[in-house]
Simulated scan of single mutants.
Amino acid sequence: MRLTAFWRLPLFPLCLSRQSRPGACTKSWKKVTGRHIDLKTKVEPAVLGGIRLDIEGTELDGTVRSRLAGLRSSIAAATL
C-alpha cells in the first residue's frame, strides 16, 4: 500500500515525537491497516497545519485549510 503524507515541516511529528525510531510511522500505519506500507513524505509549504494523506489515490485531508473551508460552508448554509 502506498501512503504519501504531506505536511509543512520536514519531519513527521505524529510518530517521531513519540518514538525516535525512523520506521515508527511505517509500523504505526501497518498496525492500523494490516498491510505493508510504502511511506513517502513530502513537505508542502501550502499546508499551514495538520496533515494530508494520499493512500493509493484516496485523499484524507486533515489540514487546517480544509477544516476552515468546512466551517465556512457550514456557516454559509446556516439559516438565521
Results as ranks from 00 to 15, higher is better:
Leu68Asn: 11
Asp61Val: 00
Ile37Arg: 06
Lys27Ala: 13
Lys40Glu: 10
Asp54Met: 10
Leu60Lys: 00
Trp29Met: 08
Lys31Gly: 09
Arg67Gln: 11
Pro45Trp: 12
Thr41Arg: 03
Ile51Asp: 05
Lys27Phe: 02
Gly50Arg: 11
Leu68Phe: 12
Leu48Pro: 03
Lys42His: 02
Thr41Ile: 06
Lys40Met: 13
Ala24Met: 14
Gly49Ala: 11
Ser28Gly: 09
Ser17Cys: 04
Cys25Pro: 08
Thr63Cys: 09
Arg65Glu: 15
Asp61Phe: 03
Ala69Glu: 08
Asp61Ser: 04
Ala24Ile: 09
Ala46Arg: 14
Cys15Ala: 15
Pro45Glu: 07
Thr63Ser: 12
Arg18Met: 13
Glu56Pro: 00
Ile51Met: 15
Ile37Pro: 05
Ala24Lys: 07
Cys15Pro: 00
Arg35Asp: 02
Leu16Pro: 00
Thr41Pro: 04
Leu68Glu: 08
Thr58Glu: 12
Ser17Arg: 13
Ser17Thr: 14
Pro22Val: 02
Ser28Arg: 01
Gly23Cys: 12
Leu53Met: 14
Lys42Ala: 15
Gly34Cys: 02
Ala69Arg: 08
Arg21Glu: 15
Arg72Leu: 12
Ala46Phe: 01
Pro22Ser: 12
Arg18Asn: 15
Lys27Arg: 08
Thr63Arg: 03
Leu53Asn: 05
Arg65Ser: 04
Arg65Cys: 05
Asp61Ile: 12
Leu48Lys: 02
Thr41Cys: 11
Lys27Gln: 03
Leu48Ile: 09
Ile37Trp: 05
Lys27Ile: 03
Gln19Gly: 15
Asp54Ile: 02
Trp29His: 02
Ser28Val: 00
Gly49Leu: 11
Ser66Asp: 14
Ser20Leu: 13
Gly70Tyr: 04
Asp61Gly: 03
Leu16Asn: 08
Ser66Leu: 07
Ile51Leu: 13
Lys30Glu: 07
Thr41Gln: 07
Leu71Ile: 06
Arg21Thr: 03
Leu60Glu: 13
Lys40His: 14
Leu68Ile: 01
Gly23Lys: 02
Ser17His: 14
Val64Leu: 02
Asp38Met: 03
Lys27Trp: 09
Arg52Val: 09
Thr26Trp: 00
Gly23Pro: 07
Lys42Ser: 01
Asp54Pro: 05
Arg65Gly: 01
Val64Ala: 03
Gly49Tyr: 11
Ile51Cys: 01
Arg67Thr: 10
Gly70Val: 05
Gly70Asn: 06
Arg35Cys: 10
Asp61Leu: 01
Arg72Met: 01
Ala69Ser: 15
Lys40Asn: 10
Asp38Asn: 07
Thr33Asn: 05
Ile55Val: 14
Arg52His: 02
Ile55Glu: 04
Thr26Asp: 00
Ala46Asn: 07
Arg35Asn: 06
Pro22His: 04
Leu68Tyr: 11
Pro22Trp: 00
Val32Arg: 03
Val43His: 07
His36Phe: 14
Glu44Ser: 13
Ser28Pro: 07
Gly62Leu: 01
